[in-house]
Nucleic acid binder design. Structure first.
Ligand code: FES
Ligand code: FES
Lengths: 157, 157
DNA sequence: TTATTTAGAGACTATTTTATCTTATTTTTG
DNA sequence: CAAAAATAAGATAAAATAGTCTCTAAATAA
C-alpha cells in the first residue's frame, strides 16, 4: 500500500471539506462527513485532528461546529495532506528500505525510484484541493468508500 | 511504505542469489545469506518459500542445500519478485483505496496515479536480476541492511 | 443557567505485518 | 544406516496499523 489507510481517509475528507466549503462558509460536520464517506467516525476524527494540528484544518466545537479549511483551498496541495499524515517518507525513503537513501551510497534501484518519486511528488504537489474538489462534480468522480463493502487487496496465492 | 518489508527482503535476497549464481552453480545457503544481508533467518526463509512456490527460485535441503534461481536471471524482472510477494495491488489498486480502480468510475487522482504506476511497472519490469546484480559490483552499490541498526520512518510530528 | 450538540482525548480492542522459536523432513557424508 | 546439515512448516510473540468505545470540554440555543 502506497498510502496508509489513515492517509487515504485524510485525502477523501479534505476533498469533502473543500467541496462543501465551495457551497457555504459553515463548518463541516464530522458526523455527517463520516456517514457520507463511510468512514468510521472516531477514526476519522483522529485523522482530522492530525490535519488540524498540521495547520490544514481548523475545528469548532458545539452545535454548528465541525471542521473547515484553514487556508485557501487553492493553496493546499494533496502532498500537504499526505505529509501531514504519512510524513515525507514516501518521497525520501529508499524503495528497498535501506537507511539513508541518496546518491552517495545508492541501492540498485535508486536511479529509477528517485525519478519516479520525484514525479509523484511534483504531480501531487500540483494538485490543489480547490481544483481537485471541483473536478469531482464536473467529471462525476468517485470519492467515497462504498456503503458496507470492504476493500480487499489482491495477493499472490 | 510502497513495498512491504517482506517484499524488500525478497528483492535483496533475489539479487544476492543472482550475484552468487554468477560465480558458481551451487545452491546459495539461506543461513549465509541471512547473515550477510542482516535479515532474520526464519523470516527470510518464509519469503524465499514464497519465491520458490512462485517459480522464481528452486530449493534443496540437506548439506550443500539452499536456494537457486529457477530461470535465467536475465528473464526474471524485479516486478516478478514484487508480484510474487506483494501481489499486483501496487500496479492495479486505487491510490485512495477505493474498490475497482479504472476509467469507468475514476477517483480524483486516477489520471495521475494511473500514469505514475504504469511508469513504475514498466521501469521495474525492465530491470532484470542479471543486469541489476551485475551493477552492484560495477557501481559498488549497497544492497544489504546495516549490521545492528534499525530503519526508522520519518513522521509528521 | 441548563440542556444539547458537537469535537477532543485517551483507553481499549482487533487485525495485519513482522519476527522468533520449535519441530519435522530431506539430503549429504561417513 | 546413523549423524549432521540444511530447508519446510507451524506455533507463538511482538509491533504496527486500524478501528471502537467512553468520557470530557467547549459552544450554541433555549
Ligand atoms: S537508496 Fe534505495 S531508493 Fe535511494
Ligand atoms: S480509481 Fe483511484 S487511482 Fe484509479
Amino acid at each position: 500500500m502506497v498510502l496508509s489507510k489513515a492517509c487515504t481517509y485524510g485525502i477523501l475528507a479534505s476533498l469533502y471539506v473543500a467541496r462543501e466549503s465551495s457551497r457555504s462558509k459553515d463548518y463541516v460536520s464530522i458526523g455527517k462527513m463520516s456517514k457520507e464517506l463511510n468512514i468510521s467516525f472516531h477514526f476519522l476524527t483522529k485523522i482530522l485532528q492530525q490535519l488540524t494540528s498540521a495547520g490544514i484544518l481548523v475545528s469548532m466545537k458545539g452545535p454548528k461546529g465541525g471542521v473547515a479549511l484553514k487556508r485557501d483551498p487553492k493553496e493546499i496541495s494533496l502532498v500537504d495532506v499526505v505529509v501531514a499524515i504519512d510524513g515525507m517518507g514516501l518521497f525520501t525513503d529508499c524503495l528497498l528500505g535501506l537507511p539513508g537513501c541518496g546518491e552517495e551510497k545508492p541501492c540498485p534501484v535508486h536511479g529509477e525510484w528517485d525519478g519516479i518519486r520525484a514525479n509523484l511528488f511534483h504531480t501531487f504537489r500540483g494538485k490543489n484541493l480547490e481544483e481537485t474538489a471541483k473536478s469531482i462534480d464536473e467529471l462525476n468522480l468517485r470519492f467515497a468508500l462504498p456503503a458496507g463493502a470492504e476493500v480487499d487487496r489482491e495477493d499472490s496465492g
